[in-house]
């Protein structure tokens, strides 16, 4: 069982308290009504699913209930960092390799 650091509680807590919530840094377009089919497809359906570092959303659902973001390496299943919703994507070494 993973330990996940909640950036709001500022504590590492067991995975049981959290729920995964999909890829991070996909902002909902403000001009939804004008979105082309292609843009909607990119926004809603297309996900990167890389091998390596993923930026993903988690919710501390059985804790503070906040959504936050995490960078996790899917090869080692290690969390590299977690950060609050709305904060910019951290620049991590090794990204994109």
């Amino acid at each position: 069982m993973l330990l996940i650091h909640c950036p709001y509680c500022e504590e590492g807590r067991p995975e049981l308290e959290f729920r995964h919530a999909g890829e991070a840094h996909i902002a909902r377009p403000e001009n939804m009504a004008e979105l082309s089919d292609e843009d909607f497809e990119r926004f809603f359906f297309i996900r990167s699913n890389p091998k390596g570092i993923v930026y993903e959303r988690w919710r501390h659902i059985h804790g503070c209930a906040r959504f936050f973001n995490a960078a996790r390496d899917t090869v080692s299943d290690r969390f590299l960092t977690t950060y609050k919703a709305g904060e910019p994507k951290p620049d991590l070494d090794g990204e994109g390799k």
Partner: peptide, 13 residues
């Protein structure tokens, strides 16, 4: 509730 919280916290904060 999760759906509402998700939008409230992350899209319409």
């Amino acid at each position: 509730l999760n759906h509402m919280e998700d939008y409230l916290q992350t899209e319409f904060p």
